[in-house]
């Protein structure tokens, strides 16, 4: 390519009026070794573009769901399940505490035997408290002796 043509193309290039083909020829031109001094300043640009195009995506393509993705879906479903369990729990919690009477829970025989046992306990308890009266009397008398001395 002649020098004046290159200069014209460079000028057009910076005004963004070159075609893809013209830019290709510029890249070709600047990839050479013998570039005139006044054009040399542009060489790194064109050389860089050519080099930049060589960069490749080298990572292996994993098209199956990534562990991150499957974890995310798992997390989503677990939270849905948690909410469901919670609402069901709330629903049943409110309906369970029905007033339960003694008569419903125990048979008459059971109640009768329990009453009997409690009556026995009460009688014996009262006996105990009567005995305490003697103890009180004893305490009074000891106090009398103690204060006298």
């Amino acid at each position: 390519m002649e020098l004046d043509k290159v200069e014209k193309l460079v000028e057009k290039y910076f005004d963004a009026t070159t075609t893809v083909a013209e830019e290709e020829s510029l890249r070709d031109y600047f990839s050479r070794e013998d570039i005139p001094a006044h054009l040399e300043q542009y060489a790194p640009m064109f050389q860089y573009f050519a080099v930049a195009k060589e960069e490749r995506y080298t990572k292996k393509l994993a098209l199956t769901k990534t562990p991150k993705g499957s974890f995310r879906t798992l997390y989503k479903w677990v939270s849905v399940a948690a909410v469901a369990v919670f609402t069901i729990g709330v629903y049943f919690y409110n309906s369970t505490p029905k007033p339960v009477t003694l008569a419903e829970e125990f048979t008459p025989e059971e109640i009768a035997s329990a009453q009997e046992a409690l009556a026995l306990l009460a009688i014996n308890f009262n006996k105990g408290t009567e005995q305490l009266y003697h103890l009180e009397e004893f305490q009074k008398n000891t106090n009398k002796f103690l204060t006298k001395e």
Partner: peptide, 20 residues
């Protein structure tokens, strides 16, 4: 597109000359 491209190219050129 053309304005952005022209500006980008000119900026690269200017900065490159500065660095040089």
């Amino acid at each position: 597109v053309r304005v952005a491209l022209s500006r980008a190219r000119k900026t690269v050129r200017e900065r490159l000359i500065q660095k040089h």
